[in-house]
Amino acid sequence: MHAPAPTASPKMSARHVNVFYGRKQAIDDVSIDVDMENVTAFIGPSGCGKSTFLRTLNRMNDTIATARVDGEIRLDGEDIYASDMDVVQLRARVGMVFQKPNPFPKSIYENVAYGPRIHGLAASKADLDRIVEQSLTRAGLWGEVKDRLNDSGTALSGGQQQRLCIARAIAVDPEVILMDEPCSALDPIATAKIEELIHELRGKYAIVIVTHNMQQAARVSQRTAFFHLGTLVEYGVTSEIFTNPRQERTKDYITGRYG
């Protein structure tokens, strides 16, 4: 497997990560660094392990009874699987945006305010108002919803709901945002808005996106990791992965021979 030289200061680093569901091994010896400067895309055919690996980065696999994770994953050098790690706090630092938009059945305002409120990030109502406005602005949604903050989040269009979920993730001031196929349920116009948003958020957060859409990976990321059968086949600069892959399996996937 070809891996690029580790980044000077990775935000997250994974070393020799294995994931098992019962006896079935889903991830086999994956090592990768994720940094603040580059959006990292995970690509590969269905069932190749890319979403499973993404879920190890904020311990979402903990919610699956049969799942077991070996190896080491660090956030700013801190072992996220250490026994004294506060998982609720970890998931605030490493936010997740899912494939299907999943706003809470609450108002637009309450969707965004919920996290800061439970994490004690706002000292007053004015603080909370500021966090909500800033998060919705960063998610490119403020202009569309500022006059209807009390409307239900579930009444928004699919693309707006996904941006609301991104605003909700941003509101707790995360360091990393994980996106698991965030556009797969959206139309092309909504998809373009999410992609534009990813460009705008780059550098403010370390961003990892799982996508089936290779054109999307080429458009939004600067680093691409190709997964196949639970292994990381190749990881490098996106433009090189797409134009000059080093591994035959990467080339076959990108040229459409399988997948």
Rank of each mutant, 00 (worst) to 15 (best):
Y109P: 08
M214K: 09
G71M: 12
Y81C: 09
L128Q: 13
D33S: 06
V34I: 15
V208F: 10
I241K: 00
M179F: 15
I189D: 14
A5L: 09
G153W: 05
H16Y: 09
A26G: 10
F227L: 01
D127K: 04
Y109Q: 07
G236P: 03
Y21C: 12
G71S: 10
Q222K: 10
K251V: 03
A82W: 00
T137P: 00
T40V: 08
R202C: 11
T243L: 06
N244H: 12
I207Q: 01
D29W: 01
V208A: 13
A26L: 09
D35I: 10
S221Y: 06
N150F: 08
Q216P: 05
L128F: 06
P101F: 12
I189R: 09
D76K: 04
I118N: 08
G153A: 00
W142G: 00
V69N: 08
I170W: 08
V220R: 07
G143H: 08
G259I: 03
G95T: 03
S83K: 15
Y109A: 01
G259W: 05
G95N: 10
T211W: 12
A3K: 15
P188A: 12
E195M: 05
V17R: 11
K11E: 15
I209W: 01
Q134H: 13
H16C: 08
A139Q: 01
F20P: 07
I194E: 10
M85I: 11
S107N: 03
L141G: 00
T250Y: 07
K106V: 12
L197M: 11
C165V: 02
W142Y: 10
V88L: 12
E78D: 13
A192K: 14
K50E: 13
R59C: 04
A155P: 01
P45H: 13
R223N: 13
L57S: 06
G203V: 07
V172L: 14
R249Y: 10
G140A: 06
F53A: 01
M214W: 12
R202F: 10
A41P: 03
A67L: 07
D127V: 03
E72H: 02
D84M: 06
A26F: 04
G22A: 07
R59A: 05
Q222V: 04
R257D: 00
G236S: 03
M179E: 13
K193G: 04
E144N: 02
R93P: 03
G22M: 11
